[in-house]
């Protein structure tokens, strides 16, 4: 039977942990709301850009030159060059299964690949995983912390990926990130990013393009890619906080439960101690 002092100490320490996890839960809840608002505010722009691309990019299927500067982004890269994957994890731990889920998804994807690959990594935990597994890493984009994700930082990430693709260093790019479905559901996914798959629908010939198709698409396509990256990053960080909130709320509950349990043991031990002391006194008195 544990002694009273040890038990009292454990009650205090579990209580402290409970306080910390409760505070972390509250922080995660606020941050989650902030990133969610951001994601909602970004929807109209993304929707409109995607709409535009869908309607205009049909022309590219028939004639790649119609895309102007962006034309190379529709063509698959040279065989033999590695396939790039943007791997998005979190910077900090204590967010439940978030990181192990995305890591598992990445490994699944890598196992299915026949060609060599290389990673572009965001997030410290993701980088640690890549190092542990010995995966080739083309770049660790640590100057774009997810915590401060903005359209500008997403554009910078997109520029790195598009640059590597244009330079012929990689033959294709996938995004491996966590899609945010709801407060309780987030799903690790791998989505193709480059080359862009031109929609089969014919271009809307009625639309006037100023100054011309190639110029418009040449500028539209990079923007389209930037929004895709922005969304991937935003959804990842939102999922991270949803996951962290959930994990911390569970931890708080578990700590409360444990505290109750230990308190019960504590009382039992105390009770027993008193009983045995009384017994000793009584039997001592009887012996007289």
């Amino acid at each position: 039977m544990a002694n009273l002092r040890d038990l009292r100490q454990r009650i205090t320490s579990v209580g402290n942990i409970e306080k910390i996890t409760r505070a972390m839960e509250m922080v995660a809840t606020t941050k989650l709301r902030r990133f969610q608002d951001k994601a909602v505010a970004a929807k109209p722009y993304t929707g409109d850009i995607e709409d535009l691309v869908r309607r205009l990019a049909g022309a590219v299927a028939a004639d790649p030159a119609a895309a102007g500067d962006a034309a190379p982004l529709f063509a698959a890269g040279a065989a033999g060059t590695p396939r790039a994957i943007l791997f998005v994890g979190s910077d900090r731990g204590l967010c439940g299964a978030y990181n192990s889920n995305i890591q598992r998804r990445l490994e699944e994807h890598l196992a299915g690949l026949e060609q060599p690959f290389t990673l572009y990594v965001i997030g410290r935990k993701a980088m640690e995983h890549a190092e542990r597994c010995g995966h080739p890493v083309a770049a660790y984009l640590e100057d774009q912390p997810l915590e401060k994700v903005s359209f500008a930082s997403a554009a910078a990430v997109s520029a790195v990926l598009v640059g590597a693709f244009r330079a012929g260093e990689v033959s294709a790019v996938d995004l491996c990130f966590t899609r945010f479905l709801s407060m309780m559901r987030y799903e690790p996914v791998v989505e193709p990013f480059l080359p862009i798959l031109a929609p089969a629908a014919a271009a809307d010939a009625e639309t006037i393009l100023e100054p011309g198709g190639p110029e418009v698409l040449g500028r539209l396509i990079p923007k389209f890619l930037e929004t895709a990256v922005y969304h991937a990053l935003l959804e990842s960080i939102t999922s991270e906080y949803a996951s962290r909130r959930f994990a911390m709320s569970n931890a708080t509950d578990a700590a409360g439960e444990m505290k109750k349990e230990i308190t019960r043991t504590f009382n039992k031990v105390r009770q027993q101690k008193i009983t045995s002391e009384i017994l000793e006194i009584v039997s001592g008195a009887e012996a007289l």
Binding site: L52, E206, T207, E210, P211, E215, R219
Partner: peptide
């Protein structure tokens, strides 16, 4: 401000995409 100078749009304009 369009790609080739200022651009005016009135109601019932034809469908258009401009930089």
């Amino acid at each position: 401000p369009g790609a080739d100078g200022a651009f005016g749009v009135l109601p019932r304009h034809a469908a258009m995409v401009s930089l």
